[in-house]
Amino acid sequence: MLRYFTLVSLLALCRGFGSITTFPEGSVEPLPLKTNDAPKSRIVGGQTTTIANYPWAVSLQHEWEEYTYDTIHFCTGTIINKDWILATGVCALMIESENVTIRVGSDYFHEGGTVHEIEYAIFHPEFNETTQDYDLALLRLNTSLTLSNSVQAVKLPSLNQNYPEGTIFSMASWGASVFLGDMTTQLQYISLPTITTELCQTVYFDRITDRMFCSYEEYVGMCIGDTGAAAVVDGVLIGIASWDYACSSYGYPGVYANVSVMVDWITEVSSSSSPAPLFCLVAALAILLRSEA
């Protein structure tokens, strides 16, 4: 049943709700890294962990009657404070059409912890659904979280904080372990090194912007359900899993929203107890106009 769900998810995610991405019409298809270009390291990925090690990780899920459990996991989110969850803009788009909830404080996406409803989403005003630039959104919860050892806010970076090539970060999520493989019900973590923008652009060309950074490790990376997962260094958030090509198949880097260059927006929105409805309307209208341009 899990494999069936993964196949169905893949079809949905290729339309925009996940880490597998399609490229704008007329653009050049990505070219994989050559073996001698790929950085080598001894880090190990895909290991089981507990939510106490990544207490900011939350599961975004919605109901599906034909699934094994009451709800299915489709994206990962990150706790910013007791009222706000950071997600990608692409994942937040699904909230408009689905009854999305989040589960916090559990090793498993289908049980344990507590479940909370989302009141509304605020997209980054420059978010571009097609290119996935500025791929951030903040989700306002209906009820505040109760913080504990298994429910904690992540630490935010300084504005424009720089992390050089080869910086090792960790990321935890409930996404699929391999392309077209089974979803993982229990939280898994991986560790990955960053690579230079120039090297990443040899694969994805000019689609990589200053609001993104890339990582690569042979056969290790994000996949279905990992979008929105926090990339952290010593407990500090440096990025959010945004997109990749074919579940980080050999030669294809993962791409992350560069949080440090957008952290001022995160702080501004999440520090407000109740943002003005006009602010939300203007942001949504700007995204709509760009998508129709």
Score class of each variant (00 low, 15 high):
residue 235 G to Q: 10
residue 189 Y to N: 12
residue 121 A to Y: 07
residue 286 A to M: 12
residue 162 N to M: 10
residue 118 I to F: 06
residue 250 Y to F: 12
residue 10 L to T: 05
residue 235 G to C: 13
residue 139 L to V: 11
residue 273 S to D: 15
residue 244 D to S: 15
residue 146 T to P: 00
residue 186 Q to G: 03
residue 129 E to V: 13
residue 57 A to F: 00
residue 204 Y to D: 01
residue 101 T to G: 06
residue 289 L to G: 04
residue 203 V to C: 02
residue 126 E to W: 03
residue 117 E to T: 12
residue 134 Y to N: 14
residue 252 Y to N: 08
residue 93 L to T: 13
residue 164 P to I: 01
residue 122 I to A: 07
residue 109 F to K: 02
residue 94 M to V: 11
residue 94 M to H: 13
residue 246 A to H: 06
residue 122 I to Q: 07
residue 249 S to W: 07
residue 119 E to V: 02
residue 10 L to V: 07
residue 124 H to I: 06
residue 235 G to T: 10
residue 202 T to L: 07
residue 218 E to A: 13
residue 268 E to C: 00
residue 198 E to K: 15
residue 119 E to S: 12
residue 78 T to Y: 04
residue 224 I to T: 14
residue 246 A to D: 04
residue 171 M to N: 12
residue 30 P to N: 09
residue 284 A to Y: 01
residue 180 L to M: 12
residue 128 N to T: 05
residue 64 W to E: 14
residue 257 A to K: 01
residue 116 H to Q: 08
residue 272 S to V: 14
residue 224 I to F: 06
residue 281 L to V: 04
residue 48 T to L: 13
residue 168 I to D: 00
residue 164 P to A: 02
residue 33 L to S: 01
residue 90 V to K: 14
residue 291 S to Y: 06
residue 134 Y to G: 00
residue 156 L to P: 04
residue 175 G to K: 03
residue 267 T to S: 08
residue 95 I to A: 02
residue 116 H to E: 02
residue 46 G to V: 08
residue 188 Q to C: 04
residue 76 T to W: 03
residue 29 E to I: 05
residue 3 R to S: 14
residue 63 E to K: 12
residue 77 G to Q: 02
residue 258 N to L: 13
residue 34 K to C: 06
residue 261 V to F: 10
residue 160 N to I: 07
residue 69 Y to L: 10
residue 95 I to T: 10
residue 127 F to Y: 15
residue 193 P to M: 03
residue 172 A to P: 01
residue 286 A to N: 04
residue 154 V to K: 05
residue 143 T to D: 14
residue 209 T to W: 08
residue 230 A to E: 01
residue 117 E to V: 05
residue 215 S to H: 06
residue 160 N to T: 07
residue 43 I to M: 12
residue 88 T to D: 03
residue 91 C to A: 15
residue 88 T to E: 03
residue 198 E to A: 15
residue 76 T to N: 02
residue 103 R to Q: 03
residue 258 N to V: 07
residue 150 S to M: 07
residue 136 L to K: 00
residue 6 T to R: 09
